[in-house]
Nucleic acid binder design. Structure first.
Lengths: 145, 145
DNA sequence: GCTGATTTGAGAACGATTCTCATTAACGTT
DNA sequence: AACGTTAATGAGAATCGTTCTCAAATCAGC
């Protein structure tokens, strides 16, 4: 009996799909815990690891050192443009970069090369929101001073 | 009195420079602790954070979630080809990738884009070593079975 | 050498992730 | 539908990397 279907695994899969971008295991767990029965944190981690292992999810390390997961849309290898504020993710293809990475590794005698290529930034709407907020923050700073 | 010069900070700088590639704060601390007086782990972290902040060191997240540091040779922005076995690092320039990243971010309306571009692989000597070891490992597997 | 702010080090605190293990429940068999 | 096997779960403990705390040590200017 290799793999059993539990409602927990389904829920994790759903929640991951519903999320618009990359989410941490922690916040996924928080979401699930809010809306239903108390699913265990360990279970969420196990489910995510499983999904990632069988290629149904992507995982990457945020610059802060958290592991982020996302439901995988396109099956193949690809990269991401991630909003560091709201987590919105755009899947990007990078054929050129792909080739460049392989060529570079070979040129230096490296084998079994994997590469990490991701772009973090502020998406259009978050950038707009940030612009609106900035004056207030400056004002607060002035007041606090 | 902004910044003080302590032998600890110097030692960290030296050790970081001596290391041939990326090292974790933990292993740097272990090295330093072995060869001399007991330098504190927190101090190593602080020194590394400081070096990274003032641009004298690079930092990146390993796929395992550890933060890795390396003495910065070229001042500007650059990327790395890292041996996942011995940590040997080659600094690589990626002007094309640079531009591609900027263009991609802009095309999707993203602002303040940073990118993570690193290649992990097996360097030539580690690959050779792995080839030698592989038959034994297979034999072991057979025996253990 | 004295003074005072910065830095240190030991350990506590912390957050993310993994492990443990008794309990639960999925699924093939009856 | 009940059964037995056994993978999966959940609560909490354990682990690991990193940051924080605070008293004691130390650097820099006088």
């Amino acid at each position: 009996m290799a793999q059993r279907n539990t409602w927990q695994r389904e829920r994790v899969r759903e929640a991951l799909t519903d999320a618009r971008g990359f989410v941490s295991a922690q916040s996924l767990h928080a979401t699930l815990r809010d809306e239903n029965t108390g699913i265990g944190l360990a279970t969420v981690y196990r489910a995510l690891a499983g999904l990632a292992a069988q290629g149904d999810a992507d995982s990457l390390q945020s610059p802060e050192g958290e592991a982020l997961y996302r439901a995988c849309v396109s099956a193949g290898h690809h990269h991401h443009l991630i909003c560091r504020s709201c987590g919105l993710t755009v899947e990007i293809e990078a054929t050129d970069v792909e080739q460049w990475a392989r060529a570079t590794a070979e040129r230096h005698g490296f084998r079994d090369a994997e590469h990490v290529v991701d772009i973090f930034g502020l998406c259009a709407s978050c950038a707009a929101a940030a612009d609106q907020r900035t004056p207030d923050q400056l004002a607060e700073k002035r007041d606090a001073h």
